[in-house]
Nucleic acid binder design. Structure first.
Lengths: 189, 189
DNA sequence: AAAAAACGTTGACATAGAACAACATTCAAT
DNA sequence: ATTGAATGTTGTTCTATGTCAACGTTTTTT
């Protein structure tokens, strides 16, 4: 149950097995169906999720009812509506499993307690933030001035899983292009 | 000289004056002219900058020689080419003062030493990362599916300083629109 | 103060990609 | 296995915005 999380923590820290067990003890499990909503638009995010199996999408819906996908997370990744988790403001976005998934869940309180208790766990959080920051940066900069074809090529380079695991529609809304354009571009590759 | 930095740290931590003095002792000062390059494209970023006075732009130049602006920082903000600072890879971007500026500089080594020595300083770094992450997110999501007018309105809402402090050209390259379009859009506001 | 360079504005034109629609295909639930 | 719904594809049309160029204005340099 905690096998993958233990591996994850072991790889990233020097914590002892007993500490890792203690940390894992703060997580509960949840099995979800496909397309199950974990966080709603006006929810204040209270949990951090670790994906044992499955995939999570972060997306929002604009006033015209159009969905835009913000982020996708897969196995062995931590994922949540981080701005809301940090600031405790309404998420203004949805968190949704897009495949039947096995999740490990830790509450915000427990998470920050661990961060403040174990400097090694703090390092994990720091790494998540650093990585999240870099990923977000790359995405901004990768897309700046790119046309549709270049965006798709960038995606294949930088997140090759994504096009294989999610629908064209979702990928298109992640790239900020229309599904038709994505369809046309794919033929040119 | 360290007045603003001391205020900054005092506001964000519970550190004693003596600790704050010790921390400030790791910073050196630098006065720069307008348009002075702090970090070059292939540099590995070794320093963190705190802006006492002035403004810094993070930008890159694509293969066609076109500049795109990535980030602007002003007084009382920390700023660097963070991905390179974190990973010690070539920056692939430039850091440049866009006004005559007074900077405080701390080396990466000293910075991480402080982060690992003072849990309170670690919190500052964590806040920088959290804030950087949220800002980057907001920028991605704020721009997704926005037309030129909406982008400018977003900018006025979220970073009102920016349009006042930087040239149209730089603002346009930050928004991912052409200077002509920005000029036209501004008339409609 | 003069000259040069950079920047901002505006018009005319070109174009990538959105929108819409029709049809084909795949998926998912019973 | 069958059926209905969601997704993917492709053609046509339309629009926002880029590009280019000309001109005016501001800034920088000498």
């Amino acid at each position: 149950m905690f096998r993958d999380l233990k591996t994850y923590i072991t790889q990233k820290t020097n914590l002892q097995a007993s500490d890792i067990d203690f940390i894992c003890g703060h997580f509960t499990t949840q099995k979800t169906k496909r397309n199950q909503i974990l966080i709603n638009y006006y929810d204040i995010c209270e949990d951090y999720y670790f994906i044992n199996k499955g995939a999570i999408r972060l997306f929002t819906v604009n006033k015209e009812g159009l969905e835009t996908s913000r982020y996708f997370a897969f196995e062995n990744m931590f994922c949540t509506a981080l701005p809301s988790f940090i600031d405790q403001q309404p998420a203004l976005e949805y968190l949704q499993t897009i495949e039947a998934s096995d999740l490990l869940i830790i509450s915000r309180n427990d998470f920050y307690t661990l961060v403040n208790t174990y400097s090694e766990f703090d390092k994990i959080y720091r790494e998540i933030l650093e990585l999240g920051f870099i990923t977000a940066q790359k995405r901004i900069y990768g897309f700046q001035g790119f046309d549709a074809l270049e965006k798709v090529q960038w995606l294949i380079q930088n997140q090759p899983n994504l096009l294989l695991r999610v629908s064209n529609k979702m990928a298109a809304s992640y790239l900020g292009i229309s599904p038709s354009t994505l369809s046309r571009v794919k033929k040119k590759l």
